[in-house]
């Protein structure tokens, strides 16, 4: 299990935070769209966008207060589990920001979220395999 995400509230998720895409364009975090991530990965060269499907969501056994998210990642359908705070937002293809606790996400970041569910396909990144 990957160590928990930092529990301090990352400011790049704060509503109004300015995000720089690989194209150089600047957008607010709440205005990002799926295409922005896909395009940025294409331009960045070294990174690849993966589709990570949420397979299971349950309270973390090791870290009370966090949730364990079980993903299958990329073409190989690798199994990856991460522990995150319930308010941590994930970008779901075609849907936008989603979290296990949209109320807490709105309270802490001001970011409006959908409810993350099993079966949601999240944007994740990995290193581009050298050809």
């Amino acid at each position: 299990v990957t160590p928990a995400a930092p529990t301090n509230n990352p400011s790049h998720f704060m509503k109004g935070a300015i995000i720089q895409l690989a194209t150089g364009e600047l957008k607010r975090v709440e205005d990002l769209q799926t295409q922005d991530f896909v395009r940025s990965a294409e331009v960045s060269g070294g990174l690849k966008i993966d589709s990570s499907m949420v397979m299971d969501i349950r309270p973390s056994q090791q870290r009370p207060g966090l949730v364990s998210l079980h993903f299958t990642v990329g073409e190989q359908q690798s199994k990856v589990t991460i522990d995150v705070p319930p308010e941590h937002p994930f970008f779901v293809f075609g849907q936008g920001w989603s979290s296990c606790s949209p109320e807490r996400t709105a309270q802490l970041y001001g970011l409006t979220c959908h409810h993350l569910q099993v079966g949601d396909m999240c944007v994740s990144i990995t290193l581009q395999q050298q050809q």
Binding site: S44, F71, Q76, S78
Partner: peptide, 25 residues
């Protein structure tokens, strides 16, 4: 004179998880 306030700008890849698909388990 008002000091220009610098606005932090974050890179796009800081927003999405790095789930290295070579990981497993």
């Amino acid at each position: 004179n008002v000091e220009p306030r610098s606005v932090p700008v974050f890179p796009w890849h800081s927003l999405v998880p790095f789930l290295d698909s070579s990981q497993s388990g």
